[in-house]
């Protein structure tokens, strides 16, 4: 347990010692800020219209601002996650520091979990910025916090799964750019798989639909925890971490 935290701390230090963490945080602040401003602007506009037309059907902040924002965040995550996970093992391989990790009295699994956890914590920091924005909704309105909490839980689960896959891809190369590009491709595919299920009803299309990240995230954004979605993300985490550990082991045999 201590070893995992030792590795995580070192990874986080590396993230924040290089521009990468600040760059991601700044980028995310701008992007999410725009989404937030846009969503709130739209909401205000609609509510003005409905008041002028004399109809006052209930306006739901959760449904009209928070949910679309969470969905946007889920998609933006697909683009940011490769940037977080790409360096995890590729950089160690390039610098030769992988030899230090693999000859120290720690288990491979501790190294993997430590790195994965650090990446997840950095992603949680990004989400923290979005929470600052959300804070305004609570300051000026009364949205329900429970569905939002579930939405954030879903985002963390989704990031956990994709980061695990990214960690695995990072072990296969010593080049960060390659690791990042391949992870980006994988994330994008996991996103768009859903499209096929829109018009095709054959079994393979259904299976592809099941594999889609966005489809499994959607219920979370509504505040619904469905076992099958939670199982999907947990399996993705386990799969990614399992593949990483196999890959590290094969690295030993081939090295």
């Amino acid at each position: 347990m201590m070893n995992i935290w030792t590795i995580s701390r070192k990874e986080l230090k590396s993230y924040f010692a290089s521009p990468i963490a600040y760059l991601l945080l700044a980028m995310y602040a701008v992007i999410f800020g725009f989404f937030f401003w846009n969503a709130v602007g739209y909401f205000v506009n609609i509510s003005m219209q409905s008041t002028m037309m004399g109809r006052s059907f209930p306006m739901d902040v959760n449904e009209m601002i928070i949910r679309p924002l969470l969905m946007n965040t889920s998609v933006v995550g697909l683009f940011l996650i490769p940037l977080i996970s790409m360096r995890l093992f590729a950089e160690e391989k390039r610098q030769g520091t992988i030899e230090l990790l693999m000859t120290s009295p720690v288990r491979d699994m501790e190294v993997i979990l430590g790195k994965w956890l650090a990446a997840l914590i950095l992603y949680a920091c990004l989400l923290g910025i979005s929470l600052l924005n959300m804070g305004f909704l609570f300051a000026y309105g009364k949205p329900d916090w429970r569905p939002m909490l579930v939405g954030y839980l879903g985002l963390i689960l989704q990031a956990g799964g994709l980061l695990a896959v990214g960690t695995f891809i990072s072990t296969t190369t010593r080049n960060q750019i390659i690791a990042g590009a391949v992870t980006f491709g994988a994330c994008l595919l996991l996103w768009v798989f859903d499209w096929v299920a829109g018009y095709e009803t054959a079994t393979w299309a259904t299976v592809m639909g099941y594999m889609s990240v966005v489809r499994h995230y959607e219920p979370f954004s509504k505040g619904v925890i469905d076992t099958k979605d939670a199982v999907y993300f947990l399996s993705l985490i386990f799969l990614g971490i399992f593949l990483t550990s196999r890959s590290l082991e094969s690295l030993r045999w081939r090295a």
Binding site: K10, S14, A17, Q95, G96, T97, E99, L100
Partner: peptide, 9 residues
């Protein structure tokens, strides 16, 4: 052969 160092530390 190459010392395993982290340049950013």
């Amino acid at each position: 052969e190459t010392p395993p160092l982290y340049p950013e530390m």
